[in-house]
Computed example of a mutant assay.
Amino acid sequence: MPVTTDRSPLSGIAFLVGAAFFWSLMSVCVKLAGERLPSQQIVWARATVTLVYSYIMIRMAGLDTLFGHNKKLLLLRGLFGFAALTCFFFALTKLPLADATVIHYTNPVFVAIIAAVVLKESLTRWEILGAGASLLGVVFISKPSFVFGTSAPALNPLYVGVALLGAICAATAYVLVRKLRESEHPLVIVFYFPLVASLGSTPTAAFTELQWPSTWEWILLIVGVAGCAQIAQVFITKGLHAVKAGRAMTVTYLQIVFAAVWGLLFFGETIDLWSVAGGLLVVSGTFAANRS
């Protein structure tokens, strides 16, 4: 049976702003935990704990189904979400917080493009121009030596590539969330993400050099990473039920601002002019791509 909602676009935007804030806190906790723990171990902890959170929330909501109606699409959403999470967490442990966040948040441009194919939403010249501007912004942030020479410190191209791949996977997952609103409850959609991610990260985490977390790291993993991520995931799902896929994601760019502040306060990271210019290009490209 289709799921309907009477949420207004304004309430959807409020949910998206909240998601950006809690995701930024999650990123801080990932980077702190990643100073010693392998990123894939953090993915496993995040997925496993939020799986429990999601199950409890579904039972408290009294839903008549745990596994939903369109299981194939729900599994795909989970797989792309898991891939995006793996890439993003790895990038967070290897790149400056703000830079990793900006690169990951090229995903709204990819949302618009993928939605045009999957959901048959119109793709305009502004969306194409926006995609080009955002990718140029990534070049400014990464500062490859074959373009900039030695005039600016370059980011590792492998880490940048992983971050960009994560953005594409995240965009695909968000488009699937938008499609699933027609048949699934938001909590069921949220549940499939940690379900697939916990199963997928178990073997991959086992191949890393596992570390037993300290008390502080357990707090970071359970409360910081998993807790903040669960709140953000619910908020983004509710927001995407009320606002068009590509346009909705522009609001979450507030996470870039939060990330810059946290990076300075917690890690002493500063942002050079090239990164600022790149960030502005990414944000401008996304707004152009979602121009009314």
Rank of each mutant, 00 (worst) to 15 (best):
V251N: 01
M249G: 06
L254G: 14
G263M: 09
T250Y: 02
Y253L: 13
M249L: 13
L265F: 12
L273S: 13
K244P: 02
V251R: 00
L264Y: 15
A248L: 05
T250P: 01
G279E: 11
A242F: 12
F287E: 09
V243A: 11
K244F: 02
F267M: 10
E269D: 12
T286E: 09
L254V: 07
S275G: 14
A245D: 09
V282F: 04
Y253P: 00
V282H: 09
V243F: 11
L280Q: 06
T286I: 14
G279M: 04
Q255K: 10
E269A: 02
L280H: 10
L280D: 12
G246Q: 07
M249A: 10
S284Y: 14
G263Y: 09
F266H: 08
V251E: 01
G268V: 05
Q255M: 13
T270L: 12
F258Q: 04
T250G: 08
A245R: 03
G263T: 09
G246E: 01
V251A: 12
D272M: 05
T250W: 07
E269N: 05
E269P: 00
E269S: 06
A277P: 04
A260I: 14
V251L: 01
G278W: 10
D272S: 11
A245F: 06
G246L: 05
A288D: 03
A260W: 04
Y253A: 00
S275L: 01
V257N: 03
V282A: 09
W262L: 03
A288P: 01
L264E: 06
A242Q: 10
F267I: 02
G285A: 12
R247W: 05
S275K: 11
G285H: 11
